[in-house]
Design a protein around this nucleic acid. Sequence first.
DNA 1: AAAAAAG
Length: 477
Amino acid sequence: MKFADLGLSDELLQSVKAAGYEEPTPIQAEAIPQIQMMKDLIAIAQTGTGKTASFVLPMIDILAAGRRRARMPRSLILAPTRELAMQVAENFENYGKNHDLKMALLIGGVQMGEQVKALDDGVDVLIATPGRLMDLFERGKILLTGCELLVIDEADRMLDMGFIPDIEFICEKLPTNRQTLLFSATMPGPIKKLADKFLTNPKLIEVARPATANINIAQHKVHVTPRKKREMLRYLLKNDNVQNAIVFANRKTTVRELSKSLKQHGFASGEIHGDMDQSSRMAELDLFRKNEINILVASDVAARGLDVKGVSHVFNFDTPWHPDDYVHRIGRTGRAGAKGRAFTFVTDADAEAIANVEKLTGIKIPPYEMSDGDSKKPVRKAEDDADKSAEDKPEKPKRSRRKAAPAEEPANETVHEEAPQRKSRRKPSARNAEPKTSEPDVAEPQSAPRKTERSESVKPDDWNGPVPEFLAISALP
DNA sequence: AAAAAAG
């Protein structure tokens, strides 16, 4: 099967070819003909299956057949996150470069002016996150009555994020004689209901989960105690031939603190999470794409769909709570046939979560064991630790301190240089000034190296540093 | 348990 067999226009085939694709993925081969026949569609598919192109390509041909009108977009694509919406837009631009089609990207966190202007001029396709679309709609900037093609992307994610009422509201503003395409990785009850309500005789397409079968990703779980996570991460970053890596954490606060810690340890690291303003999010992503930083600490905002070329490693600094998220996260590496490595840190408290991951993926993730040589004396680590203790020991608290300091000191010590180098020992004053838990691991005794790393339990004596929040909670009756 | 999305 070739793209040429799918009845796409010549202009489109050219841009597909220019993008380097010859053969459609299974979902593209199945979905494109259905969409061309104006059928409604439910597609069960994960990101990484070629899902986006499966609707973008036929849409371009369909839209090329008509004419745009001011404020009356002809089609609408809904995506759960801004980054995903941006990526869909990039796809549209890329594949549609031989067509005269206008697009508007309606996402929050950026000025409305340009978006409104685009709407006024008339667009063929709107690509939007629900919030901003609703906002503009309520301001009377959009008429959806001419919108005869609707795509709901990542519907289950939309459900998780509480967007279903918004989607229902939007669907009701669209003409009833329209084509609706719904993409979802899973089909929970509410999504089924949504489909029943807003789709007409939909054709159902299902393709296999990609990441589970992605043999290009070498997966490992690493048993650690919470306190040892950062040290283990630094160790792996230095010793596992990391070109660039996305490090996922479950909480935004963890993302912030971990990113700051990595910078302080001399890594060229950045961060992305939903509390950052949109321009910072884009800027960090851009630095990472350009390899000006090679480590991106991220919340799950970056877990799904994000397409960065050539990510060599994914680290789950926290085991994800939802097994689906595991699949999405590690899917950021091993893309387009490249090799990738994925490490998941597992504490005792994560036993159930990791079991769920293994159940979902159907594979037993092999534990990562450091070689003896490594565990006794990691060559570069030794001197690093010496250095570290010299710098960090003074910072170690003598007693417990208040736990809730404001989370944001600007971590402006970014060092853009190759990762393993230690950086300055400067700013001791600034660091002393912060009564914060930003470095629980620095308190570890220099003389207790690697062997405690996989110890089963945490003894009270270990707690001469601040108690990580989750442990403190789990210790309660 | 969190994160995400309008501001």
